[in-house]
Computed example of a mutant assay.
Amino acid sequence: MKAAVNHQFKGQLEIQDIDVPEITSNDVLVKIHACGVCHTDLHACHGDWPVKPKMPLVPGHEGVGEVVKIGANITHLKLGDRVGIPWLYSACGQCDYCLSGDENLCLSQQNSGYSVDGSYAEYCKANGNYVIKIPDNLSYIDAAPLFCAGVTTYKALKVSDAKPGNWVAIFGIGGLGHLAVQYAIAMGLKVVAIDTGEDKLNLAKSLGASLCLDFKTDDVVSQVLEHTNGVHASICTAVSKSGFEQSYQVIRRGGKCVLVGLPPEEMPLPIFDTVLNGVSVVGSIVGTRKDLIECLDFAAQGKVKAITIEKSLDDINAIFDDMQNAEITGRVVMKL
C-alpha cells in the first residue's frame, strides 16, 4: 500500500509502498478515504516533545474510511462501516482514569500516528473498540478534522464549565479556533475572538463571534473587560506566550482559563491574583470516545463545519512547509 513514512526527525516524509497491516482479534482494518493534517503530526515528525514517537513512523490521527476487515472479538462493527481513527488509539480500560470517564488521561494509552502507525496511508490498522462511527450525512472530508481539532475544542469548552449565555474568549482562530467558535455558538455561548489580520477576524465574525479583536492593534485585555466585564472562560488555542497571558487576564472572578495550545515558552502564573479572584487554570487534551460522538453529532446537525483545503498524500511535505509558515486557513485534508 501507499504511505507517507518519516524515517528521521526533521527529515522529509517519503512516499513508499509498504505492507498492508495485519490485524489481530481486537483490531479492524480501515481503508482510508481521507486524513486531516494536524500540527501534532509536524511535532511528531520533528521530535519536538519530551516523549518521542516511534520511528520510522506513518503519521496521522484524523484518518477516516471504511472498515474492510474485522477481528474476531469486535462485534459492534460490520464490514463497510464508515469510521474514524482518532488520536486516542486505545487505553487500558481498567485504570482509575478509564473507569471514571477520563480515558484520555490513561497513562497506558496508545496514540495514532505517534506511538503506533497512523493514517497517512491507504490502509490503517485500528483498535476496534476505539474507532468511532461517522454519521451518515457527514462526508469523509468534513468528518476528518473533527477527529482531532473538533473533539479537542469541543472538550475544552466542556471543561470550561461555561453555561449558555456566558461569555467565552477564543484565542487563535486557526484550525482549532475556527471550530471552537462554532462549537461555542452551538452551545449557546457568546464569543470573543482574538487573532490578527482581517481574514481571521472576518472569519470569526461570519461564524458568529460577537466581538473580534486584533492582538497586534487592539488593547485586547481592556476591550474584553470593558465589553464583557470579564469572560466566564477563555480557550487558548494560540501557541504564543502573550496569547496565554492575555487569556488569563481577561477572565472574570471565578472564571476558568483552559489551555489547549502548546507553546515552547513557560507561562508565569500570578498566584496572588489566582487565589484572590478564585480563577481556575486547567489543561485540556483531546477528548474521550463519548466527547467525539457528541462533537460529530453537532456537525451532523449542520451546526459545525470545518473549513477544509483538499490535498493529496503526495503533497504532505509541501503541506508541512505551509504549516510551519502559518499559511494555512482552516484544516488541510488529504484525499487518498
Rank of each mutant, 00 (worst) to 15 (best):
A209K: 07
V116C: 01
D161K: 14
Y120R: 08
S312Y: 02
K241S: 11
V5N: 07
K311C: 10
N166L: 03
L189M: 13
C236R: 00
L296V: 10
F320G: 09
Y89Q: 05
N127W: 00
C124F: 11
G175L: 12
L29P: 04
A91Q: 06
G80T: 03
C98K: 05
V20I: 15
M55E: 08
L29I: 06
D17P: 14
G165W: 13
V224Y: 05
Y123T: 12
C212T: 15
T329P: 00
A326Y: 12
A299N: 12
V275I: 15
V168Y: 11
I141C: 05
M187D: 09
D291G: 09
F320Q: 13
F215Q: 08
Q94S: 14
L276M: 14
L262Q: 13
I173L: 09
D81H: 11
L259I: 14
P53H: 00
H76T: 11
C95G: 07
E245N: 08
N137K: 05
V151M: 09
S240N: 07
C95M: 04
A300Q: 08
D315Q: 06
A44R: 10
L42T: 10
G118M: 05
G63Y: 06
K31C: 03
S160H: 04
G60N: 06
I309P: 00
S222Y: 09
V51G: 00
A3L: 08
A44W: 13
I141Y: 02
L313M: 11
L99F: 05
K216E: 12
V250M: 06
Y248W: 08
G113F: 06
E327H: 13
V159K: 01
P135M: 10
I194E: 07
G230W: 01
G150S: 09
G36K: 03
A162W: 04
D48A: 11
N325G: 02
A169R: 01
G254Y: 00
L107M: 13
L179H: 07
E327P: 00
A34P: 01
R253K: 15
D297W: 06
A143G: 11
H76E: 10
